[in-house]
Design a protein around this nucleic acid. Structure first.
Length: 646
DNA sequence: TTGTTAGGTAAGGGTAATAACAGCAC
DNA sequence: AGTGCTGTTATTACCCTTACCTAACA
């Protein structure tokens, strides 16, 4: 589909009819029906209830290159409201694309037709090398490694649909109780839309629904019993597991860690020497050689005698080999280099990174496996890294890394957040979505939008919004609270709740074009100013669900009229009172942190600092003296950069 | 009897979270 | 010396793939 073509339309089906109005201040207000029968309060993430479906049942072409427009349609005469629908159009060259087929399918879970190539894999039960080679030769590719959140969402949703259609309560009934012939189509059905071999899906499902899995740490008593059972039953893991109330794989794994002769704690020099000897002997290498693969750790452990295979592997790959081959220390600059090098690989998926290649010739890298864990450490600085597609995460990290050293970085934290050593940041790189909001009614009133046919945000009837990566409204951590972000990086926090008229905010501050005032409105028109922002990274804190519950129970939260909007300041962010930031438990704070190019992917990043337990950890913190002091972002990359610049 | 389907088991490499430890500054 | 912070190291529950096996069925 060419950019100029009429786009195939995909309708965003929201369970709730979401509507916009505009108030006298020009704020767009999102309406959400009160009788929300679709379990707003359920545990299921709201984004899972937002689905895309093809309006006409037509395959929306290659939706991996689609961009989405939001348009509003009239709902009721005389109502200052707008129904929001989204349409998908082809993404222009150079613009963001959605990530992988499985994710696209998830978004289009009602329309998962486009995956002939995928289904060949996900519908085939193959475990042999030959089967695999055949598929590879046919040009099929599939995902390996850890399952992403998106994949798990697809799987769960497929399972839900399957059990619902058959009136079954618990999927475990099918998995563990139903005879094979009765569940004949089960695994193939739930594998639909996943780019994984059927066998991998099968394994995953078994683990997920086996309540003897994820039991947690083994007690001393269990360990003793396990030893007894092991002597009695050998490697009959199923029997041992049954006797212990653990899954077979769990007991098998636990036994691998147990060895009568196993030492714990610090390795002695003798042990290290022995380990090196054994590894080099078994691999036919010499002292000083780098050995990171092709080692049978079970054999190594046997020969070392005093350590388990895991201990040997870990010691070798994370320390000893590097030490013996003359490795250099890992500096903070290396963190930055690592992000850059990964970006230079230009891979679509994290699983495509060749860590061996990346680690090659890098003297500070202890092993490819170790390097991967370093990357993981960096990645984990971003709280919502699991939700972010790899390219977005990487781009965001790159932006952060490449920010000018002089950039002032500020993050909002709570006073009590100091109890937590390092604030967790969440990086949100939004997908750009053109949004058009059409005005329906011309009546006066709170809208103040008079006769205009189209409500425009800033300028232009077609306003670009950035929806967050998964093409949902992105929850902020407070149930019912979401972010939309404009093309100019103005945040639009949307609040969905049982309240029929809820909140929204976001207009440029009249006092400063660099500021966006974010304030939320409740039904009684009281609102709370929260913040300012600026093109570039916005760091935001949100309250937890607990906060609203606390408020409900104790009535301690206060709201503040709009006149008392309170800018956060630019560099010296003063403390804010609790009234400034609390809005019925839905609190949003953002501060300017740095300026980035407002182009390309999302134009900038939103760093989100959820402070679920820190904001109001106890009743005494909810008093009128509750303040939200601003701290310094402790993102190591940024710190490194500042240090480096020194 | 043979091939296919739909699982199923065991082994082992690996990941991710966290606990324990060590070094340092105050 | 005590304390708190931070980075490193060790541990371990859990994950995933691979290779091989099996029973039912066509």
């Amino acid at each position: 589909m060419n950019a100029g073509d009429v786009p195939a339309t995909v309708t965003l089906e929201s369970v709730n009819s979401v509507t916009f109005t505009q108030d006298t201040d020009g704020n767009i207000i999102l309406h959400c029906p009160q009788n929300d029968e679709e379990d707003l309060g359920s545990d299921e993430p709201v984004h899972k209830r937002l689905r895309l479906s093809s309006e006409d049942g037509e395959d929306p072409h290659d939706s991996s290159s689609a961009e989405y427009a939001v348009v509003t349609l009239p709902i009721t005469e005389g109502d200052e409201s707008f129904e929001v629908t989204m349409t998908a159009t082809e993404m222009r060259e150079g613009e963001l694309e959605t990530q992988d087929p499985s994710e696209t399918q998830h978004k289009n879970s009602a329309v998962v037709k486009k995956t002939e190539d995928v289904s060949a894999v996900s519908q085939a039960w193959f475990t042999t090398k030959e089967d695999k080679d055949t598929l590879v030769n046919k040009g099929h590719k599939w995902k390996q490694g850890m399952w992403s959140k998106e994949e798990i969402d697809i799987l769960m949703s497929n399972i839900e649909r399957y059990v619902k259609n058959r009136g079954i309560q618990d999927p475990a009934e099918i998995i563990f109780e139903m005879p094979k012939e009765e569940r004949k189509d089960f695994y193939r059905s739930i594998a639909w839309g996943l780019n994984r071999p059927l066998f991998a899906v099968y394994r995953r499902v078994l683990r997920m629904y086996d309540n003897r899995n994820h039991v947690g740490k083994y007690t001393d008593e269990e360990i003793n019993k396990l030893k007894e059972l092991r002597e009695k039953h050998g490697n009959d893991w199923a029997t041992i597991g049954a006797a212990l109330g653990r899954s077979a794989s769990s007991v098998k794994d636990r036994c691998r860690l147990m060895k009568d002769t196993c030492n714990t704690g610090k390795w002695t020099e003798d042990e290290e020497r022995k380990l090196a000897e054994v590894v080099h002997e078994l691999t036919g290498t010499e002292a000083g050689d780098v050995v990171t693969q092709g080692v049978s750790w079970a054999t190594v452990a046997e020969l070392v005698g005093t350590r388990s295979e895991k201990q040997c592997r870990s010691k070798w790959l994370n320390y000893l080999n590097w030490k013996q081959s003359g490795g250099t220390e890992w500096s903070k600059e290396n963190d930055i280099n690592l992000v850059r090098r990964i970006a230079e690989l230009e891979v679509e998926d994290e699983n495509d990174i060749n860590w061996d290649t990346l680690a090659g010739g890098w003297s500070s890298v202890r092993s490819p496996q170790w390097l991967r864990s370093k990357w993981w450490t960096i990645k984990r600085q971003v709280a919502n890294h699991k939700e972010l597609p790899f390219p977005f995460l990487l781009k965001g990290l790159q932006d952060v890394v490449e920010a000018p050293p002089s950039t002032k970085v500020v993050v909002v934290t709570s006073r009590s957040a100091t109890a937590s050593p390092s604030p967790v940041t969440a990086l949100q790189i939004p997908v750009q979505i053109p949004v058009q909001i059409t005005h329906v009614s011309s009546s006066d009133g709170v809208s103040g939008t008079s006769d205009s046919e189209t409500i425009t945000l800033n300028s232009g009837a077609l306003q670009t919004f950035e929806l967050l990566p998964s093409f949902h409204l992105q929850p902020t951590g407070t149930p019912g609270t979401y972010y939309l972000q404009t093309g100019t990086n103005q945040s639009l926090p949307l609040t969905l709740s049982a309240n029929p008229t809820v909140t929204l905010t976001a207009a440029a501050s009249p006092s400063s074009p660099d500021q966006i005032i974010l304030h939320s409105l409740t039904g009684d028109a009281e609102n709370v100013t929260v913040q300012m922002s600026h093109p570039g990274i916005i760091i935001q804190t949100v309250t937890s669900e607990d906060l609203s519950e606390l408020e409900a129970e104790q009535g301690l939260m206060k709201e503040q009229p709009p006149e008392e909007q309170n800018d956060c300041g630019e560099e010296e962010h003063g403390e804010q009172t609790s009234e400034d930031v609390q809005d019925g438990g839905k609190m949003l704070i953002s501060c300017e942190v740095k300026e980035t190019e407002n182009s390309g992917i999302g134009g900038g990043a939103v760093l989100m600092v959820p402070s679920p337990s820190c904001f109001i950890p106890s009743n005494e913190d909810i008093g009128t003296d509750s303040v939200l002091p601003l701290g310094t972002l402790t993102d190591p990359i940024l710190e490194n950069q500042e240090e480096g610049s020194d």
